[in-house]
Amino acid sequence: MLMQRPSGIAGVTVIALILLAAAIGALAPPYDPTMVDFTTRLSPPSSAHWLGTDEWGRDVLSRLLSGTAVTVAVAGLTTLLVTISGALLGAFSGLAGGWLDRCVVALMDAFLAFPALVLAIAMTAVLAGSSLAPVVALGVAYLPYMVRVVRAHVLTLRGRDFIAASRVMGNSPAYTLLRHVIPNTVAPVLVMSTSLFGWALLAESALSFLGLGLAPPAASWGGMLADSRNYFADAPWLALAPGIAISGALLGINLFGDFCRDYFDRKTKD
C-alpha cells in the first residue's frame, strides 16, 4: 500500500530525514552550534562548513540541526498534548451531550475566535520564561481544532447501533468510550495529528522568528531566518538553509497526511 503511493514514500522519507536531523542536532552536531568564531565570519558553504557560517562565525549546519531538534521537540510535544487532551475532551463532550457538551463547545468556539498564532503569542507572553511556554501556548491554540474533529466524529458514531448494542450488553459508559468509541476515532485523529504537527512546526518557527521562542544563543529555524535578514544580500545561504528546511518539512508532512487520509478512507470503504 505504502509503496504504491509516491506521495506516501516522499512523505515518510522527509519525516525520517527530519527525525534523523533532530537526533544528530541534539546528540552530535558537527560543531557546537553556539560557538562564536569571528575568523570565519559569514563564510560561504565550504568543505569545512557545508552550509557556511553566520555573522558570528557559527556553523549554519550545526545550528540548523540543533534548531531541528528544538522545533521537532516543540511541535511533537504540542501534537502529543493536543492529540491526547483533544481526543478525550472531544469524545467526552460528544458522548455526554447536554449542557456539558454545550459548555465545551462554547469554550472551544471562544478560543477559535482568535487566530491560533495570535492566541499563541498572547499565551507566550503570559507564560514567558518557562521553556515549555511555546508548547503550552501552541497546545491551547490548537486544542479546539482537535476537539471539534473528534466531537463531530463521535456524534456520528453515537448514532450507530453498535454503541446502542454496547449499552444493551450492560457495559458502562466509560468502557463503551474506551472500547468502541476511541478505537473508531483513531483514523481521523491520526490524520488530524499529522496536520497538527505541520501547523505546530510552522507556528514554532513563526514564534521564534518573532523572538518569542527559545532565548537567543539557542538555535531555531525561525530565529535563524530572522537573523539572516540583515545579511541577505551578502550571505543568502543564511536564509536559504532554514527556509528550505521549513518548506521541505511542511511539504513532507502534508504529503504524509494526505497519504494517511487516503489509506484510512480506503480501509473504511472496503
Binding site: 447501533d161 453498535f162 446502542a164 448494542a165 468502541h180 478505537p183 473508531n184
Partner: peptide
Amino acid sequence: GVQMVFQDQHSSLDPQ
C-alpha cells in the same frame, strides 16, 4: 437476560 438484534447489521457491529 434481555438482549437485542438490530435491523441495520452494518451499523450494529463495531468495525474495529
